[in-house]
């Protein structure tokens, strides 16, 4: 038997709000008037109905969900492929050479992009780092995907991302950035917007 309005904010014959009773069941909120509730048939009936409605949600939440058996192995085999690929930039300096792994270059580039105001997300798009960062000697090409806040000038933000990545990579790694390709993949409401 269903009561199609119970989960919306209806007033029960006793004056209680069904929304309060719903919050009690789904959020674990304290009852507004425990004494009234204990003796009111309308409240008790509604609580029983909502508890039954919400029970399967709690059942699903309580299910013992485990990652598939092969997941760890699958992840680590791809990680080993990445590690074996061993792509790195090389800086030849007096007294030896410095090698900087592609994933380090990619991380610096991502953090630089994320430091630009209005860029709420900047993540490499592919599964493999080499699709995001190209390295040859001390030259770097970066492909980066970003999401920008709604309302800002996309091309201006993209240019800021380009400049910031090149500056950070030069300052932190000594590498020369020859190209930064920015792909704007999403537009978002600024963080904190309810």
């Amino acid at each position: 038997m269903s009561n199609p309005a119970t989960t919306r904010d209806e007033r029960l014959p006793c004056g209680a709000h069904s929304a309060d009773l719903l919050a009690q069941v789904v959020d674990g909120a304290a009852p507004r008037d425990p004494e009234h509730q204990a003796h009111c048939p309308h409240c008790r009936a509604t609580l029983a109905y909502l508890t039954e409605l919400w029970a399967p949600v709690l059942d699903v939440a309580a299910e013992d969900v485990r990652a598939p058996a092969g997941l760890l192995q699958a992840v680590m085999s791809e990680v080993r492929v990445l590690a074996r690929a061993g792509w790195s930039a090389v800086l030849r300096e007096e007294g030896g050479q410095t090698r900087i792994a592609a994933r380090v270059v990619g991380a610096v580039a991502r953090l630089a992009a994320e430091s630009v105001p209005s860029v709420s997300l900047a993540l490499g798009g592919g599964r493999i780092a080499t699709t995001d960062v190209g390295l040859a000697g001390d030259r770097v090409v970066v492909d980066v995907q970003i999401a920008v806040d709604f309302g800002v000038s996309v091309h201006r933000v993209a240019q800021q991302v380009r400049d910031r990545i090149a500056a950070h990579l030069h300052a932190q790694t000594g590498l020369t950035t020859t190209e930064v390709n920015v792909v704007v993949v999403d537009v978002r409401l600024p963080p904190g917007t309810a």
């Binding site: 990652a67 598939p68 997941l71 699958a74 992840v75 791809e78 990680v79 990445l82 792994a101 994933r103 380090v104 990619g106 991380a107 610096v108 991502r110 953090l111 993540l123 490499g124 599964r127 493999i128 780092a129 995001d132």
Partner: peptide
């Protein structure tokens, strides 16, 4: 499974940062 796998790979790539 795909999403979790991609997530860990991305974490591995960006862990230095």
């Amino acid at each position: 499974q795909d999403v979790v796998q991609e997530t860990f790979l991305q974490a591995w790539q960006h862990l230095p940062g």
